[in-house]
């Protein structure tokens, strides 16, 4: 079971890594903004799998913070994106 969960965590890490490469290589800034959300979901999944696999419940709290901050980062992104100040 442990190795399955770890394997799953590794698999999700791989997909996240691939997605990050795709996102960060695109020129549009809106694509970049997706990165934090991606880590909120993908990173959260990885951490939850790790928490169960290593039987360390406090890791769940790290995932909780990632989830909490995923949208927060997007708010900061949108606030700072160009085009905002033209409407101020």
């Amino acid at each position: 079971m442990i190795s399955f969960l770890l394997g799953a965590a590794g698999f999700v890490l791989m997909t996240v890594a691939l997605a990050l490469v795709v996102i960060l290589r695109r020129p549009a800034e809106v694509d970049h903004m997706m990165a934090a959300q991606l880590l909120g979901t993908g990173g959260g999944a990885i951490l939850l799998l790790l928490a169960t696999a290593t039987e360390t419940p406090p890791i769940v709290d790290v995932a909780l913070l990632l989830a909490l901050f995923a949208s927060f980062a997007a708010v900061a992104f949108v606030r700072s994106a160009p085009g905002q100040e033209s409407e101020v």
């Binding site: 549009a28 809106v30 949108v78 085009g83």
Partner: peptide
Amino acid sequence: LVQLSGAIVTQLIAGTVRRRGSNG
């Protein structure tokens, strides 16, 4: 929480895209 933030982030980013075009 992730559901919520997913919904919000989609809205916010889509709003930005609509205002500036998709390559902004």
